[in-house]
Amino acid sequence: MTRRPYPVPRHRSPSSATADHPVVTSVGDLIAAVPALLGFVPARSIVLICLSTGSPTVVEMCMRQDLSDRLDSPELADVIERCGEVCTREGLDAVVAVLITGSKFTMPYEVVADALRDTLDPRGIDLFGVHHVSHLAAGQRWRSLGGDPRCGTLPDPGSSQVAASRVMAGRQIRTSRSEIALLLQPVPESECERFRNSRLRVELEDGPVGHSDLLADTVVFLEALHASDELDHLTAARIMVAISTIAVRDAVLGLATTALGPTAEAVWVELTRRVSGPDRAHPATMLGAWAYLRGDGPLAGVALQTALTADPDYRFAQLLDTALQNGVRPTVVRELVLSARSLAEDLGVELPPDAE
């Protein structure tokens, strides 16, 4: 298949980039943009950048998978197949692959390029290029595969226009995927035990509480937290009791697009860290939904993986994880949010309006 350079938008010059729509004009710049596109710096990975061609050609989504030492890795075959399915479903017509391998990785990379062509060609999807780099760092040499002569030196990924765009939009670029996992690292067992005791105390003292009251109380608690930013054990325990009730959990999702959204997300992080056992799936899934909604795929993936590790049968986490793994856009979560607001109304609770 003919290898083509990545086209510069015809209706504007490279200098016309804006914070919202940065322009990438070279292979090296596109490779350097991978950390910003993913939200973290990947290592030992294959990254598939899915494009819609036109004027300009637009990056629509990225998919990433750890690279195995085995050429017949089912994970590698799966991500390539899913990439083809996503492109077909979304009407995307080109892919760029970037292999980040580390300095000691010895896989014959051409085999990966062949596997990509075998999957994409029958679907009419162009493979614009398959590029290899050891590490995503300034000064690293990159090269192209499949007879493509392009090669060069990587510019600083942290100084790319795409990175600047992400930072200006208030989104983080983490140093690694493991940094995300550290956000959800459990507190010491003594703290988990203290939280379990607080939850038992709440359940004993409050007794059975109706769904409407649980939801209304949760909104009040989050409003107070929004003002004070102090989450004590009893308040955390009461919110945990609420989202452990499926009908209330589903309605609480309606807060994701309100001014209380960031406060609620911080609570989901704290609850995920404080809770152990299967119940950890409740707050971890809520965090996954929040992250998915705003397009933070890496955090959503880690949160949902945490939920499913805690409870492999947790249906809400299964549904969101399947959607995320298959490249379904965040609009699927927005639709759930709209349904959640209707559920809240049915419970007689008026949620705050959407944030502007």
Rank of each mutant, 00 (worst) to 15 (best):
F221Y: 11
P186M: 08
D29W: 07
A340Y: 03
G327E: 10
L92K: 00
P208R: 00
A264R: 07
T257Y: 01
V302C: 05
R329S: 11
L304C: 09
P122Y: 06
A164H: 11
V267Q: 05
I243H: 04
L308G: 09
L38S: 00
S52N: 09
I173D: 01
P56D: 02
A43S: 14
A137V: 08
V328E: 13
T218E: 02
L304R: 04
R199F: 10
R315A: 14
P312V: 04
G146V: 08
N326S: 13
S244K: 00
I239Q: 00
V24D: 02
P74W: 00
L99N: 04
T235V: 12
P5M: 09
A247Q: 12
D250R: 00
R196K: 12
F40M: 06
F40N: 05
Y314I: 09
R238T: 13
V349G: 05
D118F: 08
P7G: 05
D156W: 03
P5H: 09
G152T: 05
G158D: 12
V267H: 02
R274P: 06
L351M: 08
G301H: 12
T331R: 13
V8M: 09
A251G: 04
G261Y: 01
G54L: 07
Q325E: 15
D311S: 15
S134F: 10
E223V: 04
C151D: 13
G39F: 03
L38T: 00
R64W: 00
V133A: 05
D296M: 09
D118K: 11
T263W: 03
Q185T: 15
V202L: 01
P278E: 10
A237L: 03
D296I: 08
S103D: 15
H132D: 12
P155L: 01
V23R: 13
V34W: 05
I243R: 00
L200A: 14
M240L: 10
D20H: 13
D29V: 09
E179S: 15
G158S: 08
P262L: 07
P149N: 08
T331V: 15
C50E: 15
D20L: 15
A137E: 13
P42V: 03
D72S: 08
L127M: 06
A281C: 09
F105M: 10
P155M: 01
E189Q: 14
D279L: 11
R329D: 11
Y292I: 07
S134I: 03
C62A: 13
D66K: 04
G327P: 07
S212V: 01
D229W: 01
V167P: 01
E230S: 09
H233E: 15
L319A: 12
L71Y: 04
L38H: 02
L48A: 02
S15D: 14
H132N: 10
L76N: 01
D126F: 05
N326W: 07
E60I: 06
T25Y: 07
A242I: 04
H131L: 13
